[in-house]
Simulated scan of single mutants.
Amino acid sequence: MTDRREVEREIEGLVSALGKALGAQGTRLAVAESCTGGMICTAIVSDPQVSGALERGFIVYSLDSKCELLDLDRAEVESCEGVSRDVSLGMAKAALERSHADLALSVTGFAGPQQDDEEVGLVHIALARDGAEPLHEVHHYGDLGREAVCNRAVVSALRMLVAEAAKA
């Protein structure tokens, strides 16, 4: 996925697949985004066939916003700079609890440039649904540049969301 248009087509295809997976079931989505800064919500609302499923989005880029908007434990968030399995799972669960959604997705990671000892390209994605064990994926994209890391995170998150929506 190096060409911008190729990435855009893949994202459009995944959003279309999400619409098909959701069908007429009326599933409502919530999305909590950190490193992608709203890119997933933007992709969803860009398709009028799918946009109605988005119940709400949380842009929680800063550590403060993760703690204040999603009530995550400050010590836990600060200990990992807001990027970990537990933080991503906490974000997804909190997005589900603080919305009227049936399915909540979260993304947090380090898109770059390198700061301190963080792993550039590390992204955690989680998904929560009422009555089900939350799901988690970790990706190590590498230091590909901010745009490439964010685009890959959006693609991975949408793939996870499509797969879970298809199960419902």
Rank of each mutant, 00 (worst) to 15 (best):
72 L>W: 06
105 L>H: 09
2 T>P: 01
28 R>H: 11
30 A>W: 03
76 E>P: 00
72 L>T: 09
139 H>F: 06
166 A>D: 15
146 R>D: 14
79 S>A: 15
68 E>R: 08
118 E>K: 14
133 E>A: 13
114 Q>N: 01
113 P>S: 09
100 H>I: 00
50 V>P: 03
21 A>T: 10
161 L>E: 05
118 E>M: 11
17 A>D: 14
167 K>M: 13
105 L>R: 08
95 A>T: 02
100 H>P: 00
80 C>G: 06
38 G>M: 10
49 Q>M: 10
62 S>M: 10
157 A>H: 03
154 V>G: 04
143 D>M: 07
34 S>E: 04
129 R>E: 14
82 G>D: 08
39 M>K: 14
35 C>S: 15
131 G>V: 08
114 Q>A: 11
90 G>S: 05
146 R>H: 10
141 Y>G: 03
58 F>T: 10
131 G>R: 07
128 A>T: 00
168 A>C: 14
30 A>N: 03
19 G>E: 07
65 S>P: 00
107 V>N: 04
60 V>S: 05
106 S>L: 01
118 E>G: 02
75 A>G: 08
137 E>Q: 15
10 E>D: 13
138 V>H: 00
137 E>V: 03
90 G>M: 06
32 A>L: 13
109 G>P: 07
20 K>V: 15
33 E>D: 05
10 E>V: 14
40 I>G: 04
18 L>A: 08
67 C>T: 14
126 A>S: 15
159 R>T: 04
35 C>P: 12
81 E>K: 00
43 A>P: 03
49 Q>C: 01
102 D>T: 05
120 V>H: 02
58 F>Q: 01
6 E>P: 00
64 D>G: 11
104 A>H: 02
140 H>M: 09
155 V>E: 02
92 A>N: 08
61 Y>F: 12
81 E>F: 00
143 D>V: 04
98 R>N: 11
156 S>D: 15
23 G>M: 10
159 R>G: 13
37 G>C: 08
130 D>E: 14
3 D>F: 05
115 Q>K: 11
23 G>P: 10
78 E>M: 07
90 G>I: 05
146 R>T: 13
19 G>L: 02
40 I>V: 15
26 G>H: 05
110 F>P: 01
84 S>E: 13
51 S>H: 02
119 E>K: 13
90 G>H: 03
97 E>F: 02
130 D>S: 15
27 T>R: 15
153 A>S: 15
11 I>L: 08
161 L>S: 09
56 R>Q: 07
2 T>Q: 07
86 D>P: 01
102 D>Q: 11
126 A>F: 06
103 L>S: 00
107 V>R: 06
41 C>E: 13
81 E>S: 11
113 P>T: 13
156 S>C: 11
20 K>W: 01
19 G>W: 04
86 D>R: 07
166 A>I: 02
128 A>F: 04
121 G>S: 10
65 S>H: 04
142 G>P: 05
134 P>N: 07
167 K>Y: 10
127 L>A: 12
22 L>D: 00
153 A>P: 07
97 E>G: 14
6 E>N: 12
129 R>F: 06
6 E>M: 10
70 L>I: 07
98 R>D: 02
98 R>F: 04
